[in-house]
Write a protein that binds this DNA or RNA. Structure first.
Lengths: 334, 334
DNA sequence: TTGTACGCGTTATCAT
DNA sequence: ATGATAACGCGTACAA
């Protein structure tokens, strides 16, 4: 059984108060007693009990992270960013996922409450109203990463998906593509779906290209949905020269479907992805894609949260700049 | 500020003892008082304080997970498996990573100790002796996933890398490949490196093929190391017809390098990966690879740990079966 | 400089 | 069936 400050006090012949002071370097004691206490602590293999500390300090030095059920390197990067700064501040990270379609989200919130987390980060999960209420009832600072809610005052950090999509499609237009398809986005998804579709549409409109809704193939951002989209394009005998995808995985799905049919990318078809996930540089051909700075978003989000926790300030939302990473999946028409 | 059982007791006009009993459904009270207490608890928005509970129960209902710094979907799957079963048992997961080359591992262990985790899972990080001592000093059940240590008694769960590598190379030999290269493995890595190399060598020996050490290109399992290996093969003008890679990423590196030089896979060169990570099905061509059941390993590992925590039993190591997933990156010679 | 004593929120023992 | 009350390990006013 682990030793306590009482044990140290007894062995060292001082009071627990003194032990506590020494252990926390609060000053106000002799060098002698300090040395003695430290020595005994080491000898006894003392290790502070954070739970007991949490009780009296009314702070658990812990933050909660709720992420989606799906496990991609995508979230890995964000979480690493979070954990890195939390660690720096001496905070621990409790992790849980929200279950399929967020089924576990209420319970997750509750759990975080019971653990008395000092702050909460929600990554990429959509918050409906009841979940939002649970979140607020926790009464701790929080920030959403790569999500938003209807509530205007909920602080978030994300890229402007509509503008990012716009950038990508404009890039295609600048290279003289005129018949451009879109794949992989779920229009019902108000966070990552609809905005990207809107950006796509707006870019076309702004450049005098009329929008053909048949060229928009809905999906769920997955590899499979990319494959299916390509299949649909072929069945439609669509005359597209390029496809803008709502995710890298969907883009790989397009490429994979092309590969099966001997359609060459980018010679026969241009493909642009979204995310700049690790695979985008490893694909054949390397994928031109929209980059979200995931690790940085995790870091920035957690920094803001720490700031809010420590200084009792409120968090301001932040739109992070996206970037178009040009590789080799786009053919430059003339 | 959150309400406590004292608040409930006061408002409901009973003692804290009774409140505690009701809240924990321990029985031994009137229906009336039960209803009253429950009503007040709800009205006050009561939420139990797990930290306080941990103190008196000497159990934090928490397990710690230490993983490597690198963030791939690989670990995501394992962690999801862990979290799923932990959640089932009502346990929370505290996550931390071990820093680059495990620089933070000692601190991580210490942190887990201070949080009084009931058990610990180490994922894929190599434990040197001092780290091992820290681990044991925590005096809680633990299990290693996808790692081992020199200590025979340290429970682990992993696939037999040597046999898995053997299987993959034998598959190549069965399809009449005779000059087979190996790429991406770090021979200094006693966990994932050396055994895979040994499996490769053993498979060759068992089939009367002499081993050419020049055909073994060391690496760090990364995409880059795969590319470099391919470059080396070309500079050597090696007459290989196939390459066995120690990771899928390295395999993609090989393929990428081939792509740049118009070498076609698998027509001109056969490639086999290792991990069956998500990318292996998305690559061009889809990758034949060795599968480790990551999610299942996470689940199984956590189940064993839970068992050990709850029943105070010890954990037995387990070797999980690997599997060769055949896709389209292998050419069948005759 | 050091010690006493109380409180944090909860469970558990022992009375009643 | 219910209530006092003592822990659990720690921090901290207040005293000395």
């Amino acid at each position: 059984m682990a030793s306590t400050i009482k044990d140290i006090a007894r062995v060292a012949g001082v009071s627990t108060a003194t032990v506590s002071r020494v252990l926390n370097h609060l000053g106000g004691y002799n060098e002698d007693t300090e040395k003695k206490v430290m020595a005994v602590a080491k000898a006894l293999g003392y290790r502070k009990n954070e739970n007991a500390r949490s009780l009296v300090q009314k702070s658990s030095k812990t933050i909660g992270v709720i992420m989606p059920e799906v496990t991609t390197a995508f979230y890995g990067d964000i979480i690493k960013g979070i954990e890195d700064v939390a660690y720096e501040y001496g905070y621990s990270v409790i992790l849980t996922h929200a279950g399929s379609q967020g089924s576990r989200i209420q319970e997750s919130m509750n759990l975080m409450g019971e653990r008395r987390v000092d702050g909460l980060i929600i990554v990429s999960v959509e918050l409906h109203e009841p979940a939002m209420e649970s979140l607020l009832s926790l009464d701790v600072p929080y920030i959403l990463i790569s999500t938003k809610t209807k509530r205007e005052d909920a602080p978030y950090i994300k890229v402007d998906d509509e503008r990012a999509a716009y950038t990508a499609v404009k890039y295609l237009i600048d290279h003289h593509h005129r018949t451009i398809g879109m794949a992989g986005a779920n229009p019902e998804d108000p966070i990552a779906g609809a905005p990207r579709i809107n950006g796509y549409i707006q870019a076309l409109l702004d450049h005098g290209i009329k929008v053909d809704l048949n060229l928009i193939k809905a999906g769920d951002f997955s590899f499979e949905s990319g494959k299916q989209a390509m299949q649909a394009f072929l069945e439609d005998q669509a005359k597209i020269t390029a496809v803008f995808c709502a995710s890298d995985e969907a883009a790989l799905g397009i490429i994979s479907a092309c590969f099966e049919r001997q359609i060459s990318v980018p010679e026969d078809l241009t493909v642009v992805g979204y995310d700049n996930s690790k695979v985008s540089s490893m694909s054949i051909p390397p994928l031109t894609t929209v980059a979200q700075p995931l690790y940085e978003m995790g870091k920035a989000g957690c920094s803001k949260l720490m700031d809010a926790i420590i200084h009792h300030t409120s968090i301001e939302s932040q739109v992070i700049a996206h970037e178009l990473v040009v590789r080799q999946s786009v053919k430059k028409l003339s």
